[in-house]
Nucleic acid binder design. Structure first.
Lengths: 195, 195
DNA sequence: TCAAAACATTGACCTAGAGCAAGAACCAGA
DNA sequence: TCTGGTTCTTGCTCTAGGTCAATGTTTTGA
């Protein structure tokens, strides 16, 4: 099936860039990655459940978010095309997730189970290297986020987001952007006119 | 030298717990870790320089912080005893650090160069595993921090810090705690009476 | 041991951004 | 293509936490 072949090609390119893996090695494990589809607003992971898989977005987007004591959604991350995304904390610790993962748009993605994934990390030096890279980047991204969110005004944070993820304001609903930035949709609406 | 031996013992325990490494393997590379001392307020890393080493605290503490456009210090992390601490972003990317690392108290620590460290990560599966664990925890900690800092009131953040790092309020100067929590020392002073 | 400097507290203000209500514009799906 | 429900905007008001100034309290290093 051409579509699946093509999707594997995209995943292969991803691994190859991060680790220089050879096609033969990739072919040997690629079937651990299962192609999946999610409708708009479909939940991939519910709060309270242990995250069982790692996901690689082919087309569409996921959002990772929590709901706090006051019932407000707090978005931590938008997983866009060509990115792995999961609740790493839950996946690593096998602890109940405090996050939801939800498709924002109709989304095509690969899914690999925790067991298979960490097996690959342990047995394939190339996957190990790619995982290390994913972790390192996840960490770096989250550090940047801490520094950007703290100490900047809401307007500056918005400008930063816009510069860093061009086009995201057009693609993702404003209320989700607001949640990601830690401001209310009201404030965001007012700030957009100042951009 | 007893002191050095003892310090290696502590580092060995650390690695052993995370990876189950054997004493022989540890002994083969332990001399890559060099014992160092820093005076109170001594800088370990200056902003703008590429971070060259990873550090393991034996006694004392480091703080990692940035200075923003308005000249305010923003503390990201307190490295206490028995923890690795460095500017991972700069160390990994070999990019100029945007952070300072400074000893808060007189501090005894191990230092290992980037080259030696990543060599060990590549060649020793046990160190690789320990590094993975460090990265995973760094990531998890920073995720928690994002969720705690956003959406909680300043008082709740303070309570969280106090519960999570018992005794830190007595040990670390208030103005640093305030900076870590993203509030002013004035606000912290007022909040402490509400604890 | 003690002076100078750094740190902490408190009071009186001020402001960025929240909350809420009401209405307008925009979809998604049937 | 229409329609009912989301989403977005805008005005008004309110509050958590910031700023600044004045004063008291620790630290520390010579």
């Amino acid at each position: 099936m051409t579509d699946l072949m093509n999707s594997y090609q995209i995943l292969f390119s991803y691994f190859q860039q991060l680790s220089g893996i050879a096609a033969e090695e990739f072919d040997a494990f690629k079937d651990k990655f299962v192609l999946q589809f999610a409708k708009r607003k479909e939940f991939i992971l519910q709060e309270g459940r242990v995250c069982q898989s790692n996901y690689f977005i082919l087309k569409g987007s996921f959002r990772m978010y929590q709901i706090n004591e006051l019932g407000q959604e707090m978005i931590r991350y938008f997983a866009l095309e060509n990115k792995f995304g999961t609740n790493l904390t839950s996946l690593i610790e096998e602890s109940p997730s405090q996050e939801f993962i939800q498709a924002i748009e109709p989304t095509t993605y690969f899914k690999i189970s925790r067991v298979d994934f960490f097996n690959l990390v342990e047995t394939s030096p190339h996957v190990n290297k790619a995982y290390r890279n994913i972790l390192e980047n996840a960490y770096i991204t989250s550090q940047k986020r801490i520094y950007k969110l703290q100490g900047m005004t809401a307007l500056d944070r918005l400008k930063w987001l816009n510069a860093h993820y061009p086009g995201i304001l057009a693609r993702i609903p404003s209320k989700m952007i607001a949640s990601y930035l830690g401001i209310t949709p009201f404030t965001l609406s007012r700030l957009k006119s100042e951009l």
